[in-house]
Write a protein that binds this DNA or RNA. Structure first.
Lengths: 222, 222
DNA sequence: AGAATAGTGTCTTTGAGACAGTATCTC
DNA sequence: GAGATACTGTCTCAAAGACACTATTCT
């Protein structure tokens, strides 16, 4: 049983994957972009054509490693984009993935797309619209999805370091939601964190902070 | 600029759309299935290959109308499924859509997939696994998505009739969530409903019920 | 000392859940 | 009248939000 007979001559769309790889630091959300030579240096999301014999997610990891030199990140499907004119080379649909990392060893091609300062946010809003294809919108959708799932998923786990201070987690939530939990955050995050040590770095004023890890999920995912 | 040069000989996946069309009545959730001749009478979701020059959503509506004779439903993208062996004819990925209707003029091919009676649910759990391809799982995912978004979206609007009694809405929520809001539902649904009349049908015991419509969304969608 | 950060405790308000109780309709 | 449905009101408990206050560390 094969498609050869029915469909060999049938024109069908090309399929790509694109990854929105995000990381957070202090009050910044950053996205990894690349500058493919075939796009005249225009910045775009890393990705590529789906291999006929590989899962989209596996293709994604391969392309992300090859073109953006990133690996080991968390990934989940975001949405499929199929506007007719989204790629001028032809009918190319893309399965977009929301990807998260806490790796800060790399600095090339990372762009801040949100910050506490409104000015900085305005700046990048323009930049997003300058990206290739519909990649700006995909990034906006990724940020929205991340924000919506913050409290109801394990997503924060993949953005935070292995051990982090309570205030690190609070800053992450407050940045993405634009909220201010003051002294109530500890109570709200409840038992999602487990204490794993103490911060002896001595880099800050104030008392030594406790360090936490994200607790094992009770599978409230999705 | 065309793909002819780079990719003409490049083997790429086929792309289909599939629609999970749901409707609710009393304490039942029903899904529309078809029996394509090429699948030896196996029940499956309506859908088909994405036209090269049409949006996936437009292809979906066309195929749903042609193969299942349904139209005018609400639709939103669910998820894209791309397991290598999901279709034995070759690499075929499918963009699945969650579709909702309140039309009860048709009865062919509608299957109950949930009910208050546990027995009925068991029955259909088996049936779902007998469907073509991964369509059983897609339906499960659609139901889960619907349930998760009940309170945070306008989805109930597309399942309820134009004017409905408070208890109709309550039954819908309670069926999908397996919950029991007793006399508190009116308060919980809050200002999401607007009163539009009175039920003068006189088909039931008890006082005449007020009729409601779903209020205009404050765009909490997604 | 002064400033920044970490952490506790408490007061108020809001909302969820449980449920008693009343009114109205059909049969 | 019986039984079902519609609707209101109230009590309790838990969580959210605001915020005062203390403690610890660095400069």
């Amino acid at each position: 049983m094969s498609l050869k007979n029915d469909l060999e001559l049938y024109q069908h769309p090309y399929v790509t994957v694109d990854g929105v790889l995000l990381r957070t630091r202090d009050s910044h959300l950053e996205v990894k972009l690349i500058q493919p030579s075939k796009l005249n240096g225009q910045w775009s999301l890393p990705g590529g054509f789906v291999f006929i014999d590989k899962l989209a997610i596996d293709t994604l990891r391969e392309k992300m490693s090859e073109k953006a030199n990133v690996s080991g990140f968390y990934a989940e499907q975001l949405q499929t984009y199929d506007a007719l004119a989204r790629d001028e080379r032809g009918r190319i649909i893309t399965i977009a993935y929301l990807c998260l990392t806490n790796d800060f060893s790399d600095f090339d091609g990372w762009f801040s797309i949100i910050s506490n300062e409104d000015l900085a946010r305005e700046d990048m809003a323009v930049k997003l619209d300058d990206l290739a294809f519909d990649h700006g919108q995909i990034i906006r959708d990724a940020k929205e999805r991340l924000t919506n799932k913050l409290w109801y998923s394990d997503l924060p786990k993949y953005l935070l370091p292995e051990a982090f201070r309570m205030s690190d987690a609070q800053k992450l939530f407050e940045m993405l939601e634009g909220s201010n939990y003051q002294n109530n955050f500890r109570r709200l995050i409840g038992n999602r964190l487990v204490e794993v040590g103490r911060d002896d770095s001595g880099l800050r004023k104030g008392p030594k902070a406790r360090l936490y890890s994200w607790a094992i999920s009770d599978k409230r995912e999705k």
